[in-house]
Amino acid sequence: MAVKFFGQFLVEKGVISREALLQAIQLQETANLGFGDHAVAMGIMTETDVSRVNQAQRAEDLRFGDMAVKLGIITGAQLQDVLAKQKSSHLFIGEALVKVGGLSSADLERYLAEFKVDQAKYATDSVTIPAGTPHPEVCTIIVDLTSKMLTRIGRLTFRLESGRLAAAPVENDIAASMGFTGDVRAMYVLTVSRPVQKKIAMAILDEPDVEQESQGILDDTLMEFINVVCGNVAAKAAQLDTSLDITPPLLIEQPGSQQMDARSIGVSFPICFSDGERAELFLSVLP
């Protein structure tokens, strides 16, 4: 029911043991060299260069290869050569499991096929992202998974409108936010009307009626909903080699007054329900 990692899928299926998985992870760590190790092995960098890059990374948040280019140690073409070598020699978890005897080759083929079918429902559909939005590929994943989760977890029927650049979220009854850190820095805000919040609460709590629930519980379900969306966004982004982490969800009392980073670009995606209720996905993304 979620975006998964192949090793996790196999454990959940009961196909592999935790011990085999641990051995496979350890094998991966030995076999999958970092950028610096590959660059040294290819004769592109020296150990001294690697230390210089590591030192520079303490002062600036840049990936190893990008920092090596910035420092003039390697060229853009050499960066691509090392990345290509790293990619072509990568030992995947399924292959590692076969090597440690945790899975047969035939089972690997079979379960990879099953995994693809299981994860097909989370394939990213086309989303209209306004021109000028930073990191459009990550924003596409965010918008797409929000829509899919509103449908699958929230059991809601709605129309997601095209995105437009905006300074702040539109005021609504309630809003919850989460931060993305890592390769992309962004704030995720979901604003909803009270009736929409109740529908999400009914779905999360699996209850036919939430009229007797406290506002605290209703707010908690909204925060949990965006937590699930954002965690799955991080999982999907990881499949595209984009590393994201998330901060705990927060409730925003007055969505329109939310302070955004002055350098960030805001994008609004209105969500319209057939009964006239409204919600909005708002992203504030740093270039």
């Binding site: 029911m1 979620a2 975006v3 998964k4 990692f5 090793g7 996790q8 454990v11 959940e12 935790r18 998985l21 641990l22 992870i25 978890i93 989760m149 699958r152 977890i153 937590n227 699930v228 969306v229 954002c230 965690g231 799955n232 991080a234 999982a235 999907k236 990881a238 590393s243 998330i246």
Partner: peptide, 26 residues
């Protein structure tokens, strides 16, 4: 956790001694 599908997070938990990791929504 909602981060269960992030391979690096999953592996970190297993290496630290978790029995396994279940993704949200479960």
């Amino acid at each position: 956790t909602s981060l269960g599908g992030v391979g690096d997070k999953f592996k970190e938990c297993i290496k630290l001694g978790a029995r396994t990791v279940i993704s949200k929504p479960f």
